[in-house]
Computed example of a mutant assay.
Amino acid sequence: MDLIIKNRIQIVVHISIWILLYGLSFYPILNDARPIPSDVFPKLIVIIVLFYFNYFYLVPAYLLRKNVLIYLLVSLVLLVVSVLVLNHFYQPKFPTNDFIHMQPPTDFGYMWVYRSFISLGIPYVISAILRMYVEWKHNENLRQSVEKENIKSELQFLKAQLNPHFLFNTLNTIYALSVKKSPDTSEAIVDLSELMRYMLYEADKDLVPLNKEIDYIKSYIQLQRLRLADSENVSLKITGEDRGRAVPPLLFISFIENAFKYGTDYKGKTFVKINLDVTDESVFLNVKNKIGIFKEPTSNSGIGLENIRNQLELIYPALHKLEVKNDGENYEVSLTIYQKKQSL
Score class of each variant (00 low, 15 high):
Leu78Asp: 01
Leu64Ser: 05
Arg131Lys: 15
Tyr57Cys: 08
Leu276Val: 10
Gly292Pro: 09
Ala259Lys: 09
Leu177Pro: 04
Ile308Met: 09
Thr173Ala: 05
Pro317Glu: 08
Val77Tyr: 01
Pro35Gly: 10
Asn286Glu: 14
Arg65Gly: 02
Lys261Gln: 14
Ile118Gly: 01
Ile151Tyr: 05
Ile303Tyr: 00
Ser334Cys: 09
Thr336Tyr: 03
Phe271Met: 06
Leu72Glu: 03
Val247Met: 08
Asp206Tyr: 01
Arg197Ala: 06
Leu305Thr: 12
Ser235Gln: 08
Pro92Lys: 04
Val59Thr: 14
Asp230Phe: 01
Pro297Trp: 07
Tyr71Lys: 03
Thr173Leu: 10
Leu155His: 04
Ile36Met: 11
Lys290Phe: 05
Asn211Tyr: 11
Glu323Ala: 11
Gln339Trp: 02
Tyr198Lys: 07
Thr239Val: 06
Glu187Asn: 11
Leu120Tyr: 02
Val81Arg: 00
Tyr266Leu: 15
Tyr110Asp: 05
Leu162His: 01
Arg143Pro: 03
Thr279Ala: 11
Thr170Tyr: 01
Val208Lys: 03
Phe294Asp: 12
Asn172Lys: 10
Ile315Ser: 00
Pro297Gln: 10
Asp191Tyr: 14
Gln342Ala: 11
Asn307Pro: 06
Phe166Ser: 07
Leu285Met: 00
Met1Arg: 07
Pro317Ile: 08
Asn310Ala: 14
Ala160Asp: 12
Leu20Met: 13
Ser82Ile: 04
Ser219Glu: 13
Glu332Gln: 15
Ile45Gly: 06
Trp18Ala: 10
Gly23Ala: 09
Phe94Ser: 13
Phe284Lys: 12
Val125Lys: 04
Asp98Thr: 12
His165Gln: 14
Leu226Lys: 15
Leu155Ile: 12
Val179His: 03
Val68Trp: 07
Ser219Leu: 05
Pro95Lys: 03
Asn97Met: 08
Glu306Gly: 04
Leu3Val: 13
Glu323Pro: 00
Tyr216Pro: 04
Ser38Glu: 10
Asp242Phe: 06
Gly263Met: 07
Thr336Leu: 10
Leu142Asn: 10
Pro123Ile: 12
Ser145Thr: 11
Lys212Glu: 10
Gln144Arg: 11
Trp136Gly: 02
Val146Ser: 08
Pro95Val: 06
Asp98Glu: 14
Ile29Ser: 06
Tyr175Trp: 04
Tyr114Met: 08
Ala203Pro: 03
Asn310Lys: 15
Val13Phe: 01
Phe108Val: 08
Tyr316Thr: 07
Ser254Val: 09
Gln339Arg: 12
Glu296Ala: 13
Ile29Phe: 01
Tyr262Met: 08
Val77Gln: 00
Ser25Val: 10
Gly121Ile: 04
Leu58Glu: 04
Tyr201Asn: 14
Asn172Val: 04
Gly304Asn: 07
Ser254Trp: 04
Ala188Cys: 07
Phe51Thr: 03
Leu344Lys: 09
Trp112Met: 08
Val74Gln: 02
Pro95Gly: 13
Glu329Met: 09
Phe260Asn: 05
Arg115Gln: 12
His101Trp: 05
Asp204His: 13
Pro209Tyr: 02
Pro37Ala: 09
Phe99Met: 11
Arg225Ser: 08
Tyr52Arg: 09
Asp184Pro: 01
Thr298Glu: 14
Tyr262Asn: 15
Ala61Leu: 08
Asp265Val: 09
Ile217Asp: 03
Ile126Pro: 00
Leu207Met: 14
Lys325Gln: 15
Asn307Ile: 05
Met111Arg: 12
Tyr316Lys: 07
Thr264Cys: 09
Arg34Tyr: 04
Arg115Leu: 10
Ile308Asp: 00
Leu226Arg: 12
Asp280Thr: 13
Ser145His: 10
